[in-house]
């Protein structure tokens, strides 16, 4: 199947000489929720802006469902809806008027039923005759989403949709995104909140300093890059790790009540069997054990960290 978005060898150097994107290759499949995860300044907004036509690329190509975003921009842009990072709205327009304007801009005839549906889905229907400037920040964000959905896009970009948004609204936003995906909309969201990527995404692309470091299914990413830890709950607390066990780089936790062992799930030998045997020989007894996967947060930090 044709990818919803395909980015090939895309680079961007701003007028200031700053290189914000370096040879980015990326394919986003139809119907998925893709999270572009990266710290501030990584180049997320730049990438989205080039795809949506707000920034000129320095080199490389982008296509939306096979339509080049520059040479075939009408067809490409018709497919795409964009919710920008900043709350950039009109002030004096009503919600209804601004959403209707957006639809008109995309060359579509008035479709009151569709706009009503969009406003209802976003809980904006009651506010349809309210001037935008009278709305709260969270409501303004919804207005931006409504504008982006006014022309029934197949691909929706959400640039940091929940930045600076309270927990409740964030959850509501996630619901909106999920219901859009159920309707078949491909969703690309950028975020620097790891929980958000973890909660929402089917696949995650990690971007740092203008480079895509990894693109992987969320589950695989967590499995592939995540270390596992084995926690042993001891019958009697230890003051220090017995010298006989020094090869295993164990950690003592919970006031000496827990021994922690880190291992890589992909290595042929995880060393668990040997460890348990060694524990027995050293006379360390435990009452229970547990294994834990490192969180996406830990993976993310290890990926974007500078090599020491």
């Amino acid at each position: 199947m044709q990818p919803a978005i395909s980015v090939s060898d895309l680079s961007k150097t701003y007028g200031s000489g700053f290189q914000a994107l370096k040879h980015v290759d990326l394919e986003i499949q139809c119907g998925e929720i893709f999270a572009l995860l990266g710290p501030n300044g990584a180049g997320k907004t730049t990438l989205i802006s080039i795809i949506c036509g707000l920034v000129n690329p320095s080199s490389g190509h982008v296509a939306a469902l096979g339509h080049d975003v520059i040479t075939d921009y009408r067809a490409a842009r018709q497919l795409i809806g964009l919710v920008p990072q900043e709350l950039t709205t009109e002030a004096f327009e009503t919600v209804w008027d601004t959403v209707t304007f957006s639809r008109g801009l995309f060359g579509l005839d008035k479709n009151r039923a569709h706009i009503e549906r969009v406003l209802r889905d976003l809980s904006l229907w009651d506010k349809r005759n309210t001037k935008i400037m009278e709305l709260s920040g969270g409501m303004k964000r919804r207005v931006l989403i409504a504008k982006a959905l006014s022309h029934e896009p197949q691909i929706l970009f959400l640039d940091e949709p929940t930045a600076g948004v309270d927990v409740e609204l964030r959850k509501a936003m996630w619901e909106v995104v999920r219901s859009l995906r159920e309707k078949g909309v491909t969703i690309i969201l950028t975020t620097h909140y790891i929980e958000e990527a973890e909660e929402m995404a089917d696949r995650i692309g990690v971007i740092n300093k203008g480079e895509i470091i990894v693109v992987e299914e969320k589950v695989k990413l967590m499995r592939q890059f995540g270390q596992k830890r084995l926690e042993l709950y001891l019958q009697e607390p230890l003051d220090e790790v017995p010298a006989a066990l020094s090869n295993y780089h164990l950690e003592l936790a919970e006031d000496g009540n827990t021994l922690v062992y880190h291992y890589d799930i992909h290595s042929k030998r995880t060393g668990i069997t040997a460890l348990l045997q060694a524990l027995g020989e050293a006379g360390v007894r435990f009452k229970d054990l547990d294994t834990k996967q490192s969180s996406l947060e830990e993976i993310f930090v290890s990926l974007v960290q500078e090599p020491q």
């Binding site: 067809a75 920008p84 950039t88 009109e90 801009l105 995309f106």
Partner: peptide, 14 residues
């Protein structure tokens, strides 16, 4: 100035 131009630039208008 208000940055609402993003909408014009990302719309399929010439």
């Amino acid at each position: 100035f208000a940055k609402t131009i993003y909408e014009i630039l990302s719309a399929p208008v010439s």
